[in-house]
């Protein structure tokens, strides 16, 4: 992580050096002027996107024949390194501003009402695929466990060390689901087994896979890519 972060800062400084002729600090603790400027603009864009977000605007849905086959794998590691989680002993842990933090087994999650969707998954790189996911609406789940939905953030930690966070308004949008199934069958390891977030109102990297913990908080949790420079809100 440390290496990646300094790589980012170096990259940003290099990018800034061309037009601004600026200095090139390599110490992550001391971001240069261009880094600070870009972070400030990214924070401003977070606020603009939160204001633009309409909880009643639904992401477009598609027909079954429009589903992308075969599905496209994407992660920060090759497909054979996807984490394999033991589904029999799996427990979804809860943290932060939640009343009932009793962990949830897969069977318990499957016993909740499920929602299915065929939606478009847009990657930050620009490509898009269409897939079918089904699972538990996150808003419904958060209310069931007594989460404080006046909090700002919902954060997620994953079995592969990945982590991310989303704003509460997007978490409560009806199409935001804790997906258990993909293309009509239980999720497989490369596609986020046993539980992943599917949020069609945000970019792909805001859809963490193999989630092992969900927390509700007012302290900005950041994310794996967000901490390296991707815009935090990244809403579609």
């Amino acid at each position: 992580m440390i290496e990646r972060r300094s790589l980012l800062l170096r990259a940003m400084a290099l990018g800034a050096a061309a037009p601004l002729g600026g200095c090139n600090y390599e110490d992550p603790a001391h971001p240069d002027l261009a880094d600070k400027f870009l972070h400030a603009m990214s924070a401003w864009n977070d606020r603009v996107q939160a204001a633009l977000f309409d909880p009643h605007t639904l992401a477009p849905t598609f027909r079954p024949d429009q589903i992308t086959r075969p599905p496209r794998f994407n992660a920060f590691y090759p497909i054979d390194q996807a984490p394999v989680v033991d589904e029999a002993t799996y427990k979804l842990e809860l943290g932060g501003q939640i009343q009932d933090k009793t962990p949830w087994s897969l069977q318990q999650l499957r016993a909740l009402p499920q929602e299915s969707q065929i939606t478009r998954f847009v990657c930050v790189e620009g490509w898009r695929v269409i897939g079918q996911w089904s699972g538990v609406p996150l808003g419904r789940f958060l209310r069931q466990v007594g989460a404080d939905t006046t909090c700002k953030y919902v954060s997620m930690k994953c079995a592969d060390g990945y982590y991310s966070s989303i704003d509460m308004a997007s978490a409560l949008q009806p199409q935001t689901i804790l997906a258990l199934d993909f293309l009509g069958a239980p999720l497989t390891a490369p596609f986020g087994a046993p539980v992943r977030l599917r949020i069609p109102t945000k970019l792909g990297f805001k859809n963490p896979k193999s989630i092992i913990q969900i927390a509700v908080t007012n302290v900005y949790p950041g994310g794996y890519w967000e901490d390296q420079g991707y815009n935090w809100f990244s809403g579609s």
């Binding site: 790589l7 980012l8 170096r10 990259a11 940003m12 290099l14 990018g15 400027f37 870009l38 603009m41 990214s42 864009n45 930050v124 790189e125 890519w225 390296q228 420079g229 991707y230 815009n231």
Partner: peptide, 12 residues
Amino acid sequence: QWLGAGIAWHLA
């Protein structure tokens, strides 16, 4: 130099 910085510049 990389996608994240490119997007940051573009959206600024």
